[in-house]
Amino acid sequence: MGYLEEMAKYQKTEKQKSFSADFLEGQQIEDYEFWDEIEIGKETVVPFKFEVKAEDMMAYAEGVPDANPVFYDEEYARKCGYDGLVAHPLFISQVLFFLLQKGHGSWIRTPGARNPGQIFEWHDPIRVGDILTLKNKGYDKWIKKGKYYLRYLSELYDQDGKLKVRGYITMILPKSKADVLRYVKGERALEA
């Protein structure tokens, strides 16, 4: 059984079942944006939205794994002082990957990408029923010790335009499409 089939066993939600999971698939690479193409200062609103369902929030907590009942039991969460089911703080990972499947910001999917650390600010709780919109802006890129860094701002807003989460995200990326294609073939391309 291949690794994609192994992972399919864990898919529970509608979004998980419909998501294109093969990050090495050729057509997807054509739709990615690469480090050497990223325009600093360019801001985009991703043309897709994420409608938050309880199953999405619970599936994320399960995958941490984190069994805290505030993430699964609405009644318990209310007793703890919340106004409904609570999203795990890093639930935003699921939202970002769902929304960034192609175009500006899709660099998070590129084979060979590395995560050196992140900053997240939570401004307002994500709630079941929220319809989230993502705004992305690259604001710095640099080369250090042969590695290609990108820092960008990701902001999630709800259906009323209220800021929910802001991320100052740093990534180390392959430099170009040619370098990503080397990774796709499974070639070691650390210098890329």
Binding site: Y3, L4, M7, Y10, Q11, K15, Q16, F19, A21, D22, F23, L24, A59, Y60, E62, G63, V64, L90, S93, Q94, F97, F98, I108, R109, P111, G112, A113, R114, Y183, G186, E187, R188, A189, L190
Partner: peptide, 22 residues
């Protein structure tokens, strides 16, 4: 990977990792 939708092969594909060694 399924929970976060981050299926990057550096986490998920042991065969690919053997050669790519990110």
């Amino acid at each position: 990977a399924v929970a976060s939708l981050d299926y990057n092969p550096v986490h998920t594909d042991p065969e690919w990792c053997r050669t790519a060694q990110v």
